[in-house]
Amino acid sequence: MSVQVHPLADVGAAEIGDGTTVWQFAVILSGARIGSDCNICAHTFIEGGVTLGDRVTVKSGVFLWDGLVIEDDVFLGPNATFTNDAFPRSRQRKPYPVTMIKRGASVGAGAVVLPGVTIGEGAMIGAGAVVTKSVPAGETWAGNPARKL
């Protein structure tokens, strides 16, 4: 097994595990850590301060920013949005809070996850949800703002 990177992907000096596939038009910056057997779909972006576990699926249109930690067996649906700055200002650099997506969690298509939250192990976030606070393990949340179903 080996890492498969499409010739139209732009992959910096990232650490990428065995069996991972990176599709066309994906951009992975230097310093990113990506586990084994991941599927990084087309039109994705992964910043250098991101960590992905093993067997993670990142569907098209997902951008992952510094401060994001994604554990093993996580699914990130198409166009799921992650933020890392609660008070953004142009050209002001500051430390970013850690946002955690725990093992086996799924984030539905078009969901928005605000900075500094944790999505618990095995949790399910519905499509289009806006996650403003941490989600306990095993729960399903949906809506705007997201709440337990």
Rank of each mutant, 00 (worst) to 15 (best):
E71V: 11
L76S: 08
P78A: 14
V74N: 13
V56F: 03
L76E: 04
I46D: 02
P78G: 03
G77Q: 10
A42W: 00
N79K: 11
N79E: 14
A42L: 01
G49C: 13
V74D: 09
R55E: 08
T57P: 00
E71H: 15
V69N: 12
D54N: 15
F75A: 02
R55Q: 06
D72G: 15
T44H: 01
V56Y: 07
T51I: 10
A42K: 04
A42S: 15
G49S: 13
G77W: 10
V56L: 05
L52Y: 08
V56M: 12
W65T: 01
R55Y: 05
V69D: 04
G49A: 07
A42G: 09
A80N: 07
G48P: 01
R55L: 05
T57S: 09
L52Q: 08
T57G: 06
D54Q: 11
T51Y: 01
G49R: 01
W65E: 01
R55I: 09
K59C: 13
L68V: 04
L52M: 12
E47R: 15
L76M: 13
V56I: 09
I46C: 07
S60R: 13
E47N: 10
D72L: 06
D54E: 11
F63M: 03
V50T: 14
E71R: 12
G53I: 09
L52F: 05
T51F: 09
L76N: 07
T57H: 06
G77C: 01
T51A: 11
F63G: 13
I46F: 00
T44F: 02
S60F: 04
V62S: 08
W65C: 03
V58I: 09
V58A: 01
T44D: 03
D66H: 13
D72I: 08
P78R: 07
F63V: 00
K59S: 07
L76G: 06
G67A: 03
T57Y: 02
A42Y: 04
L52C: 13
F75N: 15
G49E: 07
L64A: 13
R55S: 14
L64R: 02
I46K: 04
D72Y: 06
V56K: 00
I46H: 02
T44G: 02
G77L: 08
G67Q: 08
L76A: 04
K59N: 15
